[in-house]
Simulated scan of single mutants.
Amino acid sequence: MIEKVNLNNILFLDIETVPQETSYLGMDEETKKLWEQKTQYQRRDEVSVEDFYEKAGIWAEFGKIICISVGFFNNKSDIRNFRVTSFFGEEKQILKDFSNLLNENYNLTAHLLCGHNIKEFDIPFIARRMIINGIALPSKINLFGKKPWEVPHLDTLELWKFGDYKHFTSLKLLTKILGIQSPKDDIDGSEVARVFYIENDIDRIVTYCEKDVIAVAQVFLKMRREDLLVDDEILHV
Rank of each mutant, 00 (worst) to 15 (best):
D164W: 10
K184F: 15
D155H: 06
Y165R: 13
A215N: 05
I202A: 01
E210G: 07
I180Y: 14
K184L: 10
T175H: 07
V192P: 08
Y208P: 00
A215Q: 07
I202R: 00
F162W: 15
P183E: 00
T169N: 04
K172D: 11
L173K: 06
L157S: 09
E191H: 14
S182I: 13
D203I: 06
A193E: 01
Q181C: 10
Y197M: 03
T156G: 13
R194F: 14
D155W: 07
L154C: 03
D155E: 09
Y165A: 05
I187C: 05
I180S: 10
V206R: 15
L171D: 01
I180Q: 13
L178Q: 07
V192A: 02
I202C: 01
Y165V: 10
V213T: 08
D188H: 11
L159Y: 11
L154E: 01
V192D: 02
P152K: 05
T175N: 07
D203G: 04
D201M: 02
E191Q: 14
W160P: 04
D185H: 13
L173H: 10
D155Y: 07
W160C: 09
D201Q: 02
D164E: 14
R204Q: 06
V192N: 01
H153V: 14
E158T: 07
G189Q: 05
T169E: 15
I187P: 04
S170L: 11
E210R: 10
L171F: 13
L157Q: 14
P183A: 02
S182T: 15
D164Q: 14
D203E: 08
L157A: 11
I205S: 00
Y208W: 03
K211E: 07
D212Q: 10
S190T: 06
K176L: 08
G189W: 03
Y197T: 01
W160R: 14
D186N: 12
D203Q: 10
K166T: 14
D155T: 12
W160T: 12
I205Q: 00
I202Y: 04
I205H: 00
L157K: 12
V213N: 08
P183F: 04
V206A: 06
C209T: 03
K211N: 10
K166G: 15
C209I: 04
E158L: 08
Q181M: 13
K161I: 01
S190Q: 07
D203P: 03
K166E: 12
G163P: 15
P152E: 13
I205A: 00
K172G: 08
E199K: 09
T169C: 15
R194N: 11
D201F: 01
L171P: 10
N200R: 11
P183C: 04
D212G: 04
D201T: 00
D201C: 02
L178S: 05
